[in-house]
């Protein structure tokens, strides 16, 4: 799980509005903290689908699955299995 989390964190550092001087906790909201907007979310979705060769089913497109580092990591772990 940790490598996936670190990978997503690296992605967010390079591709989001995340302030790299401030740490990101696992359950911090990406939208409420201004790290990710709806376009950023679509880009992240493309990234994880390609990187982990997965497709996210429509019923899993919930804010809970995409709004935090932990939520995204859990989703990937679930779909990779």
């Amino acid at each position: 799980m940790e490598p996936i989390k670190n990978d997503i964190l690296d992605y967010l550092k390079d591709n989001s509005f995340m302030d790299t001087n401030i740490g990101l906790e696992d359950n911090d909201s990406l939208t409420q903290n201004g790290i990710m907007d709806s376009i950023g979310l679509l880009e992240l979705m493309d990234y994880i689908c390609e990187k982990y060769a997965i497709e996210v089913p429509e019923d899993m497109l919930t804010p809970e699955n995409f709004d935090s580092l932990q939520g995204i990591t859990n989703l990937i772990v679930k779909l990779v299995k």
Binding site: S38, L41, D59, L61, P63
Partner: peptide, 13 residues
């Protein structure tokens, strides 16, 4: 876009 009110899904086109 997917259903929001009943399923609470994100704005994914």
């Amino acid at each position: 876009l997917p259903d929001f009110l009943n399923q609470g899904l994100l704005n994914v086109p």
